Amino acid sequence: MEIKQLEYFLAVCERGSFNKAADCLYTTQPNVSKVINNLEQELGRELFKRTYKGIELTPYGKTICQYAEVVLKHVQLMQDIALPAKARKLSVATYRSDIISKIFVDFYNEFNGEIFIEHYQGSVEEITDNVKKGICEIGIVYVAQNQRKIFNHILYHKNLQFKVLSNNSICVYFGPKHKFYEKTSVDFDELADLQFIYGVKDSFALEHHMEKINIGFKGLELLNNAVYTNSDDTIINLLLNTDLCRLGINATEKKYERYNIRAVPINDSDNVLTLGYVYTENQELSPYAKWFIEKFKQTV
C-alpha cells in the first residue's frame, strides 16, 4: 500500500466522483480509477459502490476512509517536523524569552551560521514532549519549588532527566508611569492593590507558580489581573504607558531593561523558581547544546 493510493482514495471520498478527484489531483479519470481498483484488490473488498447515479462508499469504505484520514494526518505531521539533512545542528525547546532569543543570535555569530538552528517555544508540557519525541535535544524550563513533584512525575513518564542551572527569586516589572517605579524592592503585601498583566495560560506558567508560592503573603492568587495577553508587544506597551505591572523572574539580564522598564525584586522570594534543562536519559549532549547551556547559565 502506498501513500499515493490513500491520497487518491480520500480525494474521491471528498469530491464524490472520480472525475472531480482527477481534476483536483491534476491527473486523468482513468488513472484515478486504476489507483482505486488496485487499492481495492490489495484490501480484498470494495470501497465504492458503482451505480448509474455515480459512486458511494461501502460500509467498509467508510471504515477505511477514517483510517486513511488518520494515516495521512500523521504523515503530514512527520513532514512538518522534517528538516534538511544536516549533520550539525542545535535543536532546543524553550519557554518564551528575550534572553534566549539573544543567545540564539550569539550562537549564530559564534559558529558563522554554519550550524543549523531549530527552536520551538511552548509550555512545559510542549517542551518536554519535543525532547521526548527527539525533535529537540534539550528543553529549557523553569519550575516552582512546590511543583517539583508534579514535574518529576512528568519527567519519569517521559524518560527525561532534569539538570538544575539556577534557583531564582521573583520580581515585578514596573514602567515609568507606575508609582513603584523608583522602588528598590517590594513586599508581598504591597502587591494586593496593584493591577497586573496576566501572561500565557499554562499549568506551569509563571503566574500559576506565583499562586502556589504564597511566601509572606496569603492569597496571592487574588491578585488583580486587569489584562490577559500572550503578546510581548502588548505587554511592553502596557508597562510603558499605564500603571499596570507584571510578575517575572529576577534573572541577571533584565527582560525589559532596554525599554526603560525596571525589574524590582520581591522581598523573601529567594530560590522559589528553579531554572534548568531537560534531556533524554543517558544522552551525551552535542557540543552545540553544551555551548548553549553554558551561555544560558551566564544570564541566570
Rank of each mutant, 00 (worst) to 15 (best):
E7Q: 15
Y8W: 05
V12K: 01
S17Q: 12
P30D: 14
N31S: 11
V35N: 01
R45F: 14
K53D: 02
I64L: 14
Q66A: 04
V71C: 07
H74S: 05
M78H: 08
P84F: 10
K86S: 15
A87D: 15
R96V: 10
S97G: 06
D98G: 13
I99T: 15
S101W: 07
S101Y: 11
V105W: 05
F111Y: 12
F116P: 00
I117M: 14
H119S: 05
G122S: 12
N130K: 11
N130C: 05
K133G: 05
K149Y: 13
N152E: 12
L155D: 00
Y156S: 13
S166N: 10
S166A: 15
C171D: 10
C171V: 08
C171E: 12
V172W: 01
P176Y: 05
Y181W: 02
E182F: 05
K183A: 10
T184L: 02
D187P: 01
A192D: 02
L194D: 00
S203R: 05
A205H: 13
E211D: 15
G216A: 10
G216T: 10
G219A: 06
E221Y: 14
N224Y: 04
D232W: 09
I235G: 07
N237M: 01
N241T: 09
L244F: 15
R246Y: 07
I249Q: 09
N250E: 08
K254H: 13
K254I: 13
K255Q: 08
R258L: 07
R258I: 12
N260A: 09
R262S: 07
D268K: 12
S269Y: 13
T280N: 15
T280A: 15
E281H: 06
N282P: 09
N282E: 11
N282Y: 06
F292T: 02
E294R: 07
V300W: 14
